[in-house]
Design a protein around this nucleic acid. Structure first.
Lengths: 332, 332
DNA sequence: TTGTAAGCGTTATCAG
DNA sequence: CTGATAACGCTTACAA
């Protein structure tokens, strides 16, 4: 490995001068600068980040911990985060948490171990009162859930507002018996309870009854889970003319499941999802969905971590993404 | 920051003994070990990876550079790579190349800068003869393309064999005028030329003519591009009864584009894709496709980088993934 | 404008 | 079994 000393010897100067050239610190005469740059080029020298880190204590890396890199919405998010972080001179390392509190705690621990300067954590399973959460001033930004505001910076999804708008949209289209397909965890405050509340509130506001029988619980939060849910909804003989799905993946599975049973969308049942994944637009029928502004969320999250990296003691804040309702064929 | 010296002082031992305990090197008496562990717990000590790296020259991080983290096939690949690397004690940092030679060269440069131990590079734009490619012994495994065998380890897709099988499948289903929707770059050897060759070979073997008019060139390699290609195919009045798409994203766009024009799949046109992305199974109609074994590819790539990290001078090798043809509704 | 010295936190080596 | 010492490659502080 070529070190600074090697370059220094080659250029006939001291290490320090090389360091000054590399870091563009100025105070180096032009001829010396050229000699050093030539020496760097000819030797193929590269700064050793570890050594630099050892001094500065900063790595220039932000961690991004998500439930599954394989989830549809993740790509959109990651692409934006990488882009935004890059603009600020940070690199992004991605961790997978497996959608469990366990994995999320581990991601935080790893952030220390791997010397990230900060962490953007898309927490799904973690309880805000979890004893294992760090109290220190390591920069963490929570993404997605609504409950960490006091302890951490938080960038949230418009969960209630989004599903409320989706449900109202179905009512506007003439639906009167609207089912919801979502997860089973109704304890505490999480995506499930928040999105479910948006749905019930919209129904009540529009004077429609909330029928518990129209709540279908998902197995896996995936297209496969959605497909099975559609089968159960149809096969049970329950009557419904609209469905709110907790995510687009689930909604795409519903479309497939209804097709399996010969139920036409939107003629027999209208379907609306949540996320606006890239495929939603190209599904047959194309999927109406709640579209949170992913770009905004990524930008905000990166802005918050980098701000906290600079000033770990700044007050935490709560931020909710704006959203739009994309009306497509599945609710026409 | 708590350092090893702090722990040593707290436990009343030397740094070295702490180091030995932390790294489970043995040769430490049980009572001392306990004292050290207690001191570590009570102080909240964590190893400083930079310092360790500075000594060992290894970071334990493998880079994974892909064209776009947002591409459908990427999630599958990344999930597998992260999983496989984790089993071998490596972490994965993800880079985006933007599908350009420029970005791919940069990813290699960054791998040095960021001190990755090795790099898995899904190269799309890079020419094997590119002058900027490093000659040294930094462990790089090329993923996807077919041409780097002599210089780098290479894990390839079954490009020709895959599209050949796909095309033959269409012929078996009775198609006689089979179009191909693919990229425009027919120079050199790349995904486009290889997949295109599989298509032409299958046609010739089955005694069917290769009609250049049935080659439709994509704009973007995406669902949007596929949709537009479908429109052009239909609107131009060309006759065809089957389509081979260069990727599943494109194929899903085709399905959408044909739906726009009232062309029924598979009744009027049969469609086959390439990749077997998770959504392919849930599309309406579900998408027949070439399914390369992503798990195998990830495992092989990780196996190769780690092997090369241990022994940089080992000979390079060429490996092509097995595949299966998934027959679904779009070719029924 | 350039150079010298010290030290960041860890580990390999070798002595006790 | 335990500890002192010297690196690893770089940067901060200060001297020339």
């Amino acid at each position: 490995m070529v070190t600074m000393s090697d370059v220094a010897r080659l250029a006939g100067v001291s290490k320090m001068t090389v360091s000054n050239v590399v870091n563009e610190r100025g105070g180096v005469s032009e001829p010396v600068r050229r000699r050093v740059l030539d020496a760097i080029r000819s030797s193929g020298y590269r700064v050793n980040v570890s050594a630099r880190t050892l001094k500065s204590g900063k790595t220039g890396v932000i961690g991004l911990a998500v439930p599954h890199v394989n989830a549809a919405y993740f790509g959109v998010l990651a692409e934006q985060v990488i882009d935004q972080a890059g603009r600020r001179g940070f690199h992004v390392a991605i961790e997978q948490t497996g959608a469990a509190a366990e994995g999320e705690i581990e991601a935080i621990a790893y952030s220390h171990t791997l010397q990230f300067d900060g962490l953007i954590l898309s927490a799904v399973g973690l309880d805000p009162k979890d004893q294992r959460l760090p109290g220190g001033d390591f920069p963490i930004v929570m993404l997605g859930e609504q409950d960490f505001a006091a302890v951490f910076d938080h960038v949230g999804m418009p969960n209630e507002a989004g599903t409320r708008a989706a449900t109202e949209h179905l009512v506007d289209r003439g639906c009167r018996r609207i089912a919801i397909v979502t997860g089973g965890d109704l304890s505490g405050v999480n995506v499930v309870t928040r999105r479910h509340r948006g749905y019930t509130e919209a129904l009540l506001e529009r004077g429609l009854p909330v029928d518990p029988a129209l709540r279908e619980t998902l197995g896996p939060w995936s297209a496969a889970g959605g497909r099975e849910a559609a089968h159960r909804l149809v096969d049970s003989g329950r009557e419904f003319d609209g469905v709110v799905a907790v995510t687009d993946s689930v909604a795409l599975g519903l479309l497939r499941g209804f097709a399996d049973r010969g139920v036409r969308v939107p003629e027999d049942v209208r379907v609306v999802g949540y996320d606006d994944v890239p495929d939603a637009e190209f599904a047959v029928p194309s999927l109406s969905t709640v579209a949170p502004d992913h770009r905004w969320m990524a930008a905000k999250a990166v802005e918050l971590v980098t701000a906290r990296i600079e000033d770990p003691s700044r007050p935490t804040g709560e931020h909710t993404a704006p959203f739009a309702l994309r009306e497509r064929e599945s609710t026409r």
